[in-house]
Simulated scan of single mutants.
Amino acid sequence: MNKNQYQKKMAIYVLLASGATFLASNSFAKTETPKTHPATTIDRVSAATKHKLLKEKIPSIEGEAAEIEAETQKAIVALGGNDTKGATTILQGVSTKLDNLLAKNPGLNLVPAKVETDVYDFNGTNKQVAYAIDAAEDMLKHGKLQNARKILVGMASEIRVTTTNIPLGSYPAAIKQIIPLIDSGKIDQAVVDLSSVLGTLVVTTEVMPLPVLRAEELLTVAADLEHRDDLSKEANRNEIQKFTDAAKDKLELAQLLGYGEKDDYKTLYKEIDAIHKTLFSEQSAAVWQKVMDDLGQFKDRLKDLEDAAERIGHPAK
């Protein structure tokens, strides 16, 4: 076995051993005060971002919406136990809640009923990813699909926000049509129709790559360092270099994991390198702002990456 083969093999072992770290859904993590050290900054991003996302998303869920899916399922269970009276009472309550939502949200098609936030945090290095991709491609060429799958399955580093939405254009009318079926004794048909109604719930997933979020945080800290007055300009310059290098490293990881297009990364790398030419000058603020604006726009384009997540071997929910 030559040195290159050995390195690839060891990288695969590391990847399979480390996999992806999964944090349970809907738990708030305490965040720390940022410190001027790249590793500390990186560690806190996933928890802080998840906390922020939940704070943004959960207030948009109205009480009635959060109960509708569960109560529709309860009605199916009641019908399965021949409790037609109980099922009718439940569905009448669901219908009232839907009417309230329609009155509060005229013209709105989708109302969020449930939000789940999951974090898949990849532990490998950029070099390990490159070796693993190379090895997986080699296995695929030789028809070893399952071997390649074992390598690629953990290669995702992202926050996934999954929202279950109630379609107000169809759900209320469908529920109202089921109650008469129960009254007329058509229980089997009512169960089938209720199951179909649940199937109309619209599930959307936003994918936000952690390496990109971490790069953004690192650049934010780097920009603030330029204005510190407790260090010399040379010391500040060195500190800023550490953070911008760390940010580029995280962007390279995101690129290797297949998030976004190559041209987007080329532009960002070039803009980050340009920062150092204007430090402590009148042009500096504009250069920093340009980098952060472009990175923000890139993040927006990455939000709908469900198909990209599947391409890099991430299991769809």
Rank of each mutant, 00 (worst) to 15 (best):
V203E: 07
E206N: 08
L194T: 00
Y171R: 04
Y259C: 10
V221Q: 11
V161Q: 05
V207M: 12
R237C: 00
F243A: 10
A223G: 02
N236A: 05
S232T: 14
L253R: 14
R149G: 12
Q255V: 06
N236T: 07
V203G: 08
E216Q: 15
M155C: 00
V203W: 01
E239T: 05
I159P: 01
G169Y: 03
I187D: 10
E252V: 02
Q146R: 09
I179R: 08
G258V: 06
L181P: 11
G260C: 07
V197N: 11
N147S: 10
L253F: 08
P167M: 00
V191K: 15
A173P: 00
Q189S: 08
Q177N: 13
L210E: 01
D183Y: 09
I187K: 15
S157Y: 07
K250S: 05
L198V: 12
I175R: 03
L219I: 04
H227I: 10
D263M: 07
N165A: 02
T205E: 12
E234W: 14
A148L: 03
E234A: 12
N238M: 14
E261C: 02
T162G: 03
D188Q: 14
I182G: 11
L152E: 13
V153K: 04
P209I: 13
T244W: 06
L219T: 08
A223N: 03
A215H: 00
E234F: 13
V207W: 03
D245V: 10
T162P: 08
T220A: 15
A247D: 11
N238C: 04
K248T: 15
L225R: 00
G260D: 01
A247C: 08
T163R: 01
